[in-house]
Simulated scan of single mutants.
Amino acid sequence: MQIDGKRVLITGGTSGIGLAAAHLLQEKGARLFVTGRRPDALAAALDALGPGARGLAADVASDAGRAATLEAALAALGGLDVLVNNAGAVRAGRLEETGAAEIRAMVEVDLLAPILLTRAALPALRASGDAMVVNVASGIALVGVPFYATYAAVKAGLAHFGEALRRELLGEGVHVLTLYPSATDTPMMRTSRAGPDLGFVKETAQEVAAALVAGMEADALDVRRLSEQRAQMVALNRADPAALDARFRELKPALAAAVKDHSAL
C-alpha cells in the first residue's frame, strides 16, 4: 500500500502503539483521525500530531461510540482507506479472581468492537478501492500464557477474525493485516512487573509502529514482533506443548506475583 494520501482511522490512537503509528503514518503523508476514551489524552495527542490531524473522544466498546467514531471520521476525512483496530483492554490474574465485568470489558473492547466497527466501515473501505484493515492482536494470541486466559482468548479470536476476513475479501480491494506485538512499553503495560526473566521483553511503541507501517507498505499478511524468548515459546508450543507446560509450571509463582495488578480497562 502507498501510504501517501491515505485516510486513516486509528482507534486507541491517543497513546502507545496507536499514537506512534499515527506519527509515522502522518510523516508518510496519511490523513489521520484518532480516537480514545479520554478527552484530555485526545487533546494531547492532537496537539502532538499537529493541525492536520482530527479526532474524537469516544468509547468504541459501545454502539453509540462506534457510530459516532465512524460518522465523525468519514465527515472529517471524506472517506476511509485504512481502519486500524488498536483500542485494547487487559486484566491479568487468575480466572476465578477476575470479575465478570472485567471479562466482559476485554471481550467487548478487544474482540467485539473491532468486528462491529469493521463491519460498519466496510462500505467506505470498499469505496476506496485500495483499502486495509489492521487488527492489533498480541503475541499472547500465538501462545497462551498463564493468568491471561481471557486476554489470550479474545486476541486469538481477533487474529482469526482477521485471517478469515482477509480471505473473505480477497480480490475486493480490502486487505487485512494482523499485528502481533509482544510486551510493549506503553501505558497499557505500566501495572505489569513481568520482565525478561518471565518472557516479557519490552520494545518501544516506536519500534512496533515502524514494523507495522513497513508491513502495511508491503501488504504483509501479518507482522510479528516477538522477542527471542517469546519466539522460542511459540516454537516449543508447536513442537512439544507439554514441555512448555512444564516451563510455565516453574514460572507460575513469579509470574502470578508480577502480573496480579496488571490492569488497563
Rank of each mutant, 00 (worst) to 15 (best):
S192P: 13
R193Y: 07
D197Y: 06
D219Q: 09
A220N: 06
R230P: 04
L226A: 01
V208I: 12
V213G: 09
A210Q: 12
T191I: 08
E217N: 06
A214R: 15
E207F: 03
A214S: 06
A220R: 12
G199I: 06
P196T: 03
A218H: 12
A209I: 08
D222M: 01
D222K: 01
E217K: 04
A194Q: 09
A211N: 15
A220F: 05
F200D: 04
A218C: 03
L226F: 14
A194N: 11
V213E: 13
V201P: 06
L198S: 07
L226K: 05
S192N: 09
A211M: 00
Q229K: 14
A210H: 12
G199K: 10
L198Y: 13
D197M: 02
Q229P: 06
V223A: 01
G195Q: 11
V223G: 00
Q229I: 06
R193A: 14
A205Y: 14
R193H: 08
R224I: 00
A220T: 02
D219N: 14
V208S: 09
V201A: 08
G195F: 03
V223N: 05
A209R: 08
D222Y: 07
T204S: 15
T191V: 06
D219P: 00
A211V: 00
L226E: 10
M189Y: 13
D222S: 13
Q206D: 15
M216L: 01
A218T: 07
E228K: 04
E217V: 02
L221D: 14
A210E: 15
G195H: 14
Q229F: 03
M216F: 07
G215A: 02
M216H: 04
K202W: 10
E217L: 01
R225P: 00
V201T: 12
G215P: 13
M216A: 01
E207S: 10
L221F: 11
R225K: 12
D219M: 00
V201E: 09
A214G: 05
S192R: 11
M189Q: 15
A205C: 04
A211R: 15
R225N: 09
Q229S: 08
L226M: 09
E228H: 10
G215H: 10
D219V: 10
E203I: 01
A205F: 13
R224K: 15
E203Y: 13
F200Y: 14
G215E: 08
E203P: 02
G215W: 07
A210F: 01
G195S: 08
G199M: 04
E207N: 02
V223W: 09
P196L: 06
G215M: 07
P196E: 10
M189T: 12
D197F: 04
R230H: 15
F200K: 05
A220P: 10
K202F: 10
